[in-house]
Write a protein that binds this DNA or RNA. Structure first.
Lengths: 141, 141
DNA sequence: ATCCATCTTAGAACCTGTCTAAAGAATTGA
DNA sequence: TCAATTCTTTAGACAGGTTCTAAGATGGAT
């Protein structure tokens, strides 16, 4: 174990958590380290729970769910709906879209500039657009 | 009750079901009559179940779920994912998009020509585009 | 009318996700 | 530093939506 890099990671995650108004607890730091290790991760709660266990991070499933929700509310994660009955969490919070590989149940990022929406309807009276989700559903060729 | 129009409706639904390769059973005909009475309906399984009961159509919840799935597989309905943990079924199967009123949990059709997608990425190797879902999420102004 | 395949059903089972209440950990202020 | 306070974590129960099971009922062909 590289103490140095681990310490750096923790510092990064701690700062990120503090900036989001969340106490940097052992569990949140650990989950943040897993989530934000690479970019463009798309995980489900159960997947993250399994990863945490594999990484010897002792954390309960309830905490994984709580933490994911808090991260979404804090703008650290984005929730993506691609399949009924299962939520995906995307670590890429910049404006972008998704491929969804139906057979594999796998999401893949599509950069915002790869999709251009030339025309959008105006929102109905009394409503404002929160977000436009584009999901390109893919089958095996 | 206008026997004539009911008979016509049944005939229509029966034909629709037969064409889709589904036996026109009492339950399927009744559910099809409810679903395809108007157009642009967006129902959940529980809503359709309640409607069936209200219309004195004796049908079990399991059959409502089975039937909705069969209708989707047969191309008679389109499943729309807008909220985690709940599936909506859209009777409009032509190419179009959706507004989703987040606070109310309500879908609203957006005609295909109200959205113009000027650029789409090419599908990854080995995959073909099945569909492009655009959901415009709305908040109260 | 009879048969066979398909369909429906009640209820159990399942899965994802949330809630509860109690114990534990991070911050605060003296 | 050391409570006191507040927030967090946890196991397990619970909830909502959906699917499964196995048995009985029905539709369609003969």
């Amino acid at each position: 174990m590289q103490t140095t890099s681990e310490a750096l990671e923790n510092t990064e995650s701690q700062t990120r958590l503090r900036d989001a108004g969340l106490r940097p607890t052992r569990q949140r730091i650990g989950l943040a380290n897993l989530l934000f290790a690479g970019d463009c991760r798309h995980v489900t709660a159960e997947e993250l729970f399994a990863e945490a266990n594999a990484a010897a991070l002792s954390v309960s499933l309830a905490t994984v769910y709580n933490t994911l929700r808090q991260f979404v509310d804090a703008g650290l994660l984005r929730e993506v709906l691609a399949e009924p009955g299962r939520a995906y969490f995307d670590t890429n919070i910049s404006d972008h879209h998704h491929f969804f590989h139906v057979a594999e149940g796998r999401l893949e990022d599509v950069p915002a500039d790869a999709v251009s929406i030339a025309k959008l309807p105006t929102a109905p009276a009394g409503a404002t657009v929160e977000r436009v989700d584009v999901i390109i559903r893919l089958n095996k060729a």
